[in-house]
Design a protein around this nucleic acid. Structure first.
Lengths: 208, 208
DNA sequence: ATAAAAATACCTAAAACTTGGTATTGTTAT
DNA sequence: ATAACAATACCAAGTTTTAGGTATTTTTAT
C-alpha cells in the first residue's frame, strides 16, 4: 500500500487552492488536511496538524512566501516544502533554493507534473525546475517583482503610501533624507515604475 | 433536467486551469470543453467549438485579457464571458465592465462562489464583485467627502492613479495644464488631503 | 432668469520629486 | 575570500507638485 501524504496548501488565492485540493484528490496517496490564505493561518494550523508537505505560494499579499519558507524550515525541517509561483526566472528559483524549500513549481506546469513532483519530493529528491528558456527575459505582465524588495524598502513604501515626504520619512526613521531618496529610487527601479504615484497604485493593486 | 453549460477556460497558468476544471467537474451542469493558454489557442478552439461561457484570465503573458474580451464580445456577443483576475481594485473591475464582460471574479474567491457566479451569469445576470480590500475601511458616515467630487474631478483622479503628471493629463484631455492643476487643488481641498500621494491611497481605500 | 456649481485658465515661489551619478560600510552566499 | 546585496550618505540639475491666489465661461437646478 502507498503512503498517505498529509498536505497543507498555502495560497492567498482561495480559488487556486480549491483547484489544487481537487487535483490532489485525484490520487489516493495524497490527503489535503488544510488550506491557509496567509502565514498566520498556517502557523495556527501547525499547532494542531503535522503535515508531511506544505505547498507554498511565494507571492501572497503582505506575506513573503520565501521568508515564510525560511522560518518554517528553521523550526520544522522535517516538513517538506514545495514553492509555487508564477515566476520562472532563474533568480527566483535560486532564492527558492536558498529559502530551504525542497522544490519549486511554476504555475504554468500542469496537474500531472505537480503530482509527479510531490512524489519526487516525498521520496527525498528535491526538484527545482530548469527555466525553460534562460535567455528569455522573464516578462511578468500582470505579475509582481515585489519579492525583490528588501525589508527596509517595504518599510519605506508604507511611508510613501501615507503621503510622507522623503524628509518626513527620514526624520521618522532617524536616517538621512538622501538615504530615503536612494531607497525610493531603488524601489522604482526594481519594480520598473516611474514615479511614487505609480508605486502607490502598484502597492494597492498588489497588496503591498 | 438542468442545463449543460459548455465552458472554455483561458489561463496561461495551466495549473490554475487544471484546478478550475476539477472545480467545475464537481457539478453536472457544467462541462469544460477546453483549456487554452493564450488567445491564439482560444481562437483556434472557437473554430470548432461553441461554448456558452468563457472563463478568461485577464493577466496572461503577452495577451491582454481585457482586449481579448472586447474582441470576443464584438464578434460573438452571445458567448458569456467571466473575467478572472488577481486584482481586486475598483479600477480593474471597471475596466472589466467596459470590455463587455458579464462578470468579474478575483482569484481570492472560493470554488462555491465561482459556481454560483457562473449560474448567475448563465441566467442572464451580470456579476461584478464589489471588491473588499482588507485595508479598506468602510466608513461612509465617518468622513468620506468623495460625494462632493464632480465628474471631471473623478476623471482627473484616474490619471493621477496612473501616475500621469498634470502636463501629461492636460495633453490627454486637451485642456490646459493650469486647469488640471486647479482640479487637483480642488480635489485635495474637498477631500481634505495634503498631497497626490495621500489622494491615491484614499482613492484605493475608498474605491474611487 | 438667475444663482450655484463645474470647468476652464492663469500667475508665482517654495517644496518635493526625479534622474543620473558616486561611494562607504555591513551582511550574506558561494 | 570575494562577489553580491542591503543600507547608508551625498551632489546637482531639471521637473513636478504644492499653496497662495484671481477670474471667465458653461452647465445645472430652482
Amino acid at each position: 500500500m502507498k503512503e498517505n501524504y498529509k498536505v497543507i496548501i498555502v495560497d492567498d488565492h482561495q480559488l487556486f487552492a480549491d483547484g489544487m485540493v481537487r487535483i490532489l484528490a485525484d490520487e489516493d496517496d495524497f490527503e489535503v488536511i488544510g488550506i491557509c490564505n496567509n502565514s498566520t493561518e498556517l502557523y495556527h494550523m501547525l499547532n494542531n496538524h503535522k503535515p508531511d508537505l506544505i505547498m507554498l505560494d511565494i507571492q501572497m499579499g503582505g506575506t513573503n512566501g520565501l521568508e515564510l519558507c525560511y522560518d518554517l524550515k528553521k523550526t520544522m525541517p522535517q516538513i517538506k516544502v514545495i514553492l509555487i509561483s508564477m515566476f520562472e526566472s532563474i533568480n527566483v528559483v535560486n532564492e527558492g533554493k536558498n529559502s530551504g524549500a525542497n522544490g519549486y513549481i511554476p504555475k504554468t506546469t500542469d496537474a500531472a507534473l505537480v503530482k509527479k513532483s510531490i512524489r519526487e519530493v516525498m521520496e527525498g529528491r528535491d526538484i527545482f525546475i530548469k527555466p525553460i528558456n534562460p535567455e528569455t527575459k522573464v516578462d511578468l505582465e500582470g505579475g509582481s517583482y515585489a519579492f525583490l524588495l528588501s525589508k527596509r524598502e517595504r518599510e519605506i513604501i508604507l511611508y510613501i503610501k501615507k503621503g510622507f515626504t522623503s524628509k518626513a520619512t527620514a526624520e521618522e526613521l532617524n536616517i538621512s533624507q538622501f538615504t530615503v531618496d536612494t531607497h525610493r529610487k531603488n524601489i522604482l527601479k526594481k519594480l520598473k515604475l516611474n514615479s511614487l504615484k505609480e508605486l502607490i497604485s502598484y502597492a494597492y493593486e498588489n497588496n503591498l
